[in-house]
Simulated scan of single mutants.
Amino acid sequence: MDLRQLRYFSVLAETLNFHRAAERLHISQPPLTVAIRKLEEDLGTPLFVREPRGVRLTAAGVAALPSARAALAAAEGFRDSVRQGAAGLRGRLGIGFIGSAIGQLLPRIISPYRAAYPLVELALEEMNSVEIVAAIAARRLDLGLVRLPLMDASAVEIAVIERDELAVALPTHDPLSGRTSLPLAALEQHGFIIYSPISVLNATIRLACRRAGFTPRVAQEAVQVQTILSLVEAGLGVALIPLRSARFATARVRIVPLDDPIPIEMGLAHALDAGPLVRNFVAAALAVQGVNS
């Protein structure tokens, strides 16, 4: 028994006439007659009663018809799923993201993507950039939002998704908080609240300070920008944060741009052999952000 026989049986059950069923199936009548007879032989019972002007279903045929239709519908659903999967319209995406992406970037990407690809299941997991790249390489994640540059990007392909710059976060009682902009060297005597070493921004900030002629005096390390800003508010030091994260600052923290901006980037990382599911997500994300791939 195969799907062809089930389709023949279903159409004949609807038309109750071999000639009309053959026309609907776009075949000649003899192959249809042979296929139905073979199906009945395989099942060990007749499905139709042959009459001079057509056929009628036997009790076995009446009982079998719903199952035959369900099997045909399931087969069509299977074909649709395969086509949709091959086109990146259906499936499951494992996405890693760094904490600073959760505020604006991730929601801005996810909402329109879900509207455009409702059959794709998204599994989101917060990680740092190093962990995301390792998970992509191990096939535990499909892609991730990471802070650039990566220390080792050999196993992934990167698409820049967002460009930003670092700005100074100071408590409002700091004398420098009234400035409209600052040279980085003006912070030399301040203690720094800095991103922990797992963040790319740790190395970015240390390198920028060295280029400005000093080594930052680290008062505290933290992972999340909200924590960093809270420590700045408490007067434990100053910080360099992404300018887009300024919205997390309270009224007791002042965000001041640098005279010489320090550019930073966020990217979408994925495996070099990524399939259409991932490629569709990257294209949709770049389109939302207005970034040329």
Rank of each mutant, 00 (worst) to 15 (best):
V11W: 03
E221S: 13
G99L: 09
G85H: 04
I95S: 01
E126A: 14
R7N: 11
G213I: 09
L176H: 09
S245H: 01
I158Y: 13
V133C: 04
S181H: 11
L170S: 03
P30R: 14
I102H: 08
L119Y: 10
P175N: 09
S230F: 02
D259G: 13
S67L: 11
G99S: 15
Y113E: 06
L93A: 02
L25H: 05
Y195F: 15
R20W: 10
A249C: 06
P118T: 11
D142R: 00
G94Y: 04
A186Y: 00
A116P: 03
V120R: 06
L6Y: 11
R37G: 10
A86M: 14
G85A: 10
D80N: 12
A212C: 09
Q5M: 11
T33L: 13
R114K: 10
E40M: 03
A169E: 04
L124R: 01
G54E: 00
V253I: 10
P261H: 08
S199F: 11
L243Q: 11
R244E: 12
R247C: 03
I102P: 00
L145H: 02
C209H: 04
S181E: 14
R139C: 09
E126T: 12
Q104T: 12
Q5P: 05
A185W: 08
Q226P: 01
N202Q: 08
L57T: 07
G267M: 01
L72M: 02
P149D: 10
P31S: 12
P216F: 05
R179I: 01
L170G: 03
Q189L: 12
S67Q: 09
L150D: 07
A68D: 09
A68P: 00
A35G: 05
R108E: 01
A234L: 12
A222Q: 09
V232W: 00
Q29G: 02
I264K: 06
R247A: 14
S154V: 01
V200Q: 13
P118N: 08
D174T: 01
V288Q: 02
V291W: 04
L201W: 10
A73H: 10
A75M: 07
S230Q: 14
M1S: 14
R56W: 07
V146L: 05
L122E: 05
E233S: 08
E221H: 06
A21S: 14
V256H: 05
I262G: 02
A74D: 13
A186R: 08
L141Y: 06
G213D: 12
R37Q: 15
T180N: 14
L272N: 07
